[in-house]
Design a protein around this nucleic acid. Structure first.
Lengths: 207, 207
DNA sequence: TGCCACACTGACTGACCAGTCAATCGAGGG
DNA sequence: CCCTCGATTGACTGGTCAGTCAGTGTGGCA
């Protein structure tokens, strides 16, 4: 069953990523997607009920993977810094693997307050909540200081990551592997330092 | 000369803010703006050459004030933490004063990579560069550690602020004065802690 | 009083495009 | 060899909307 039928659907989705990334959701035509996919116009409507549903599908596909990554990080027994590093790493790897898809998700969904974003607001908030939960746990462990609310810390963390990606997206210059790794380290380093307690700060922490 | 003529122009701009904030730039009609301004359709084109130029004007008006605020902070003799606090304060005050305008700028311009953002990319980058300059200076002073590049620090800082605003924008719940102030403190605190050197912990600290 | 310049009006048009649908293709099964 | 059914095609339609333009109202000035 995962033959030609499903293949074409996939081809259309992949073409849509390229078209949305280049022209933007609102500016592109459905025929652009069909052309990019090498498929007749009508076939797009055979697989999707509307232009919006294509974007919908792209977002949900990827975001669900991200929510799983956050949940997995949260569930692991590692220290909070490493959990956050895993999340930042996941997001940056997503960009490494498919920069155009990340561009579409960030530009057209995550920030598209009015039209599209509202539909997926709950999903988006789930991610913030997952990160906040990690911070909250770190605070009650005494590893992170309590002056900063977990919700705020989550926004600051996610915002930093997304802004760094946005910078790359707009520069339209390929980012080297080294830069990607370096960025991950810098984000996690900076934010974790900002959140950590300072008092007893030995190598082998023991609150 | 700053009579009725200029007034109507202003009325149209203010109406556009409300309309863009509620419906989004791409989704709204020019007639919506004219209606909201209580003005004939054609008058919009008397003052502006296109729908896009309205957004253009709104963005530039506000962004230039922000660039000035950044430059002023940079020029002051205060420590870097206070400079960054002034900038975060300016952005948050902008939101306090006109949340709808900030929504439009963030959602429709700052993140609108494809169509609109590119036009103003240079202006937007100027802001990042201004913040980066402050960080760079703080690093050569020895107040901030050098492991994090100034460009990255600027992105992380600005990204945190913008993400917190985005959170408020989407919540569509009025934010209290106290929360606004608290957010400012938390952002600056967190990021500055993340950027500071740790070694000697002199009396520059709030203690 | 007459005239000009310009703010202002809103009906109209030309272009564009999302979504529809009737027709064609082709694989598999009888 | 024909029939069926889902995949596939692309011309067409209905509606929308940015931008135009011919015209009206009015304040100021000679």
């Amino acid at each position: 069953m995962t033959t030609a039928a499903t293949d074409k659907r996939r081809v259309i989705l992949d073409a849509a990523v390229r078209v949305f990334a280049r022209q933007g959701f609102h500016t592109c035509r459905v025929s652009d997607i069909a052309d990019a996919a090498g498929v007749a116009y009508g076939l797009v409507y055979h697989y999707f009920s509307s232009k919006e549903q294509i974007l919908d599908t792209l977002f949900l596909e990827r975001w669900d993977v991200m929510l799983a990554a956050i949940a997995e990080a949260d569930a692991s027994p590692r220290p909070p810094q490493e959990k956050l590093e895993a999340i930042a790493g996941f997001i940056i790897d997503s960009y490494r693997h498919d920069p155009e898809l990340m561009k579409v998700i960030i530009v057209e969904v995550t920030r598209a307050a009015n039209t599209f974003g509202l539909t997926h607001l709950a999903k988006i908030r789930e991610a913030y909540a997952g990160i906040a939960a990690i911070v909250a746990k770190a605070q009650s462990d005494g590893r992170f200081r309590a002056e900063v609310t977990p919700e705020f810390a989550a926004q600051a963390f996610y915002g930093s990551v997304e802004q760094v990606l946005t910078g790359w997206i707009f520069d339209s210059v390929a980012v080297s592997e080294a830069e990607l790794e370096r960025a991950k380290t810098m984000i996690v380093d900076t934010i974790c330092r900002g959140l950590e307690r300072r008092g007893p700060n030995p190598a082998g922490e023991s609150a």
